[in-house]
Write a protein that binds this DNA or RNA. Structure first.
Lengths: 258, 258
DNA sequence: CGTACGTTTGATCTTTCTCAATAATGGTGG
DNA sequence: CCACCATTATTGAGAAAGATCAAACGTACG
């Protein structure tokens, strides 16, 4: 069980959640060279315009991707939890189109670009995993466009809190709908396209409605069904069921129900 | 030059814009079986929850992806022009997370899922092309999150008009910053997360500033530089330069400048 | 030539932003 | 352990962007 102590363990687990891997695949991934670094909160990992030569995998802590408008407004376009690959993008595109930054102090495994590319070239299941992962990320972006474009602040916030809970729980990093929200209200505002002031008021509203409880950054969701409803949240877009090579044509209605 | 008459010609051209293909690749793609259908405007190609067995490629006309909130508000999450593959998503994910709909009357080539999967399995350059395509789409989604989350209506609209112009011109479907905008103001509103009324007023503002000219749906951009500026538009996120296997380390600054 | 759909306009309302001040909180050096 | 500082959270009041509602106007098309 050596690889269970590997910093890439969570990464493998997440990959496996999406596509079936074999023991040899796990071993090959575990054998990838990498450098483990501990980064302080708010450290840039990649900047827009960079062409880094590594693929970063988040081992512990949190990170986000962020873009700035010409006027300096910031939008956080994705949030990342331990086990997430942060840089598949840079494996195949020449120039980064966004900034990648740690949210909290974080451990990041930097895998040399060429090593991972080589593995993807020789191991079709790993390549498949990367593609599926990318497709799921794209699906999350679509939901965020919807969230920011068409939901009011209360719904938008509730939706985000639900998404974060489900993603953490899928990675077994939280349970009982309770977790540490690793960001300031200003960062929350940049995720949701709101102002910090309004985020504060929106959180108070949700708390007053009994949908969430806050103590410092600790968030509890005493009424999951209620928050889910208010947040118009349906986890389908997270594609949490494993994407097997052969799709379960026979259980289509099962999928539909989920 | 038989394949130049193939309905998939634009598709191949776009794929080639992103990754290098060889003559054999082009031939293999041209040999893919498909059914060509002409669909009326507003026809659903795929619905959320579906698991279709084909991959749709847009041959002519326009299409979009759309999601609905529980309250019935609609958000268009992407726009598609001739040559775009609409369904790489469904090749690898079990269940669709959004609706795919024609915008105008359109010709769509339906390629059987298994045929394309098989080609991707046996031809690494095609597989690579699919991955790069998916990554670029993800980049566009990120820009849309920024656009909807952090730009005001005027900027947002100008940005969209610029993006559409550049994408059409990259596919040689328009030039001289002039094109037919294939959608109603209500649909534009659903793209931008605004109301139709406000879209109308925003278009009038841009026209009054001399940044665009409208005659019916025909859009002309007499002051490209001005519109680009107002729209805070930088085409980097479209990743239009070809993504060659080996990245041009030596011309990094060229890329930076672009 | 009438009907349906899309566009335009005006008036009013609401959500969210802005600005500004105050209050917690956490970390740091003494 | 305490005082101080920087950051973050909270509150209030007023402003603004964009939404809503409702009507009128165009245009295409059968």
């Amino acid at each position: 069980m050596t690889e269970h102590r590997s910093p890439l363990q969570l990464f493998v687990r997440k990959l496996e959640q999406h596509v079936p891997l074999e023991e040899t695949d796990r071993r090959e991934i575990a054998k990838l060279p990498f450098k483990l670094r501990t980064l302080e909160a708010s450290t840039y990992i990649t900047r827009e315009g960079d062409s880094p030569d590594y693929c970063a995998v988040l081992v512990s802590g949190f990170a986000y991707r962020q873009k700035l408008t010409g006027q300096g407004a910031r939008q956080i376009v994705s949030l990342h939890i331990p086990g997430d690959a942060l840089d598949f993008q840079q494996l195949f595109l020449n120039v980064s189109d966004h900034n990648l930054q740690t949210l909290t102090r974080a451990e990041v495994a930097f895998i040399p670009r060429e090593s991972l590319l080589e593995l993807a070239r020789t191991n079709p299941r790993v390549a498949h995993g990367i593609l599926v992962w990318t497709l799921i990320e794209a699906s999350i972006f679509r939901e965020w466009v919807l969230n920011v474009g068409r939901r009011d602040s209360r719904t938008r916030m509730a939706h985000l809190l639900c998404e974060f809970a489900v993603r953490l729980e899928a990675q077994r990093l939280a349970n009982e709908h309770q977790y540490e929200l690793p960001m300031t209200q200003e960062q929350l505002a940049d995720v949701l396209g709101l102002t910090p002031v309004h985020v504060n008021r929106t959180l108070q509203t949700l708390a007053a409605e009994g949908l969430i409880t806050r103590r410092r950054r600790r968030l509890t969701i005493p009424d999951w069904e209620g928050l889910r409803e208010v947040g118009d949240f349906n986890a389908r877009y997270l594609h949490l069921q494993r994407q097997d090579g052969a799709r379960p044509e026979l259980s289509d209605d099962l999928n539909r129900a989920a």
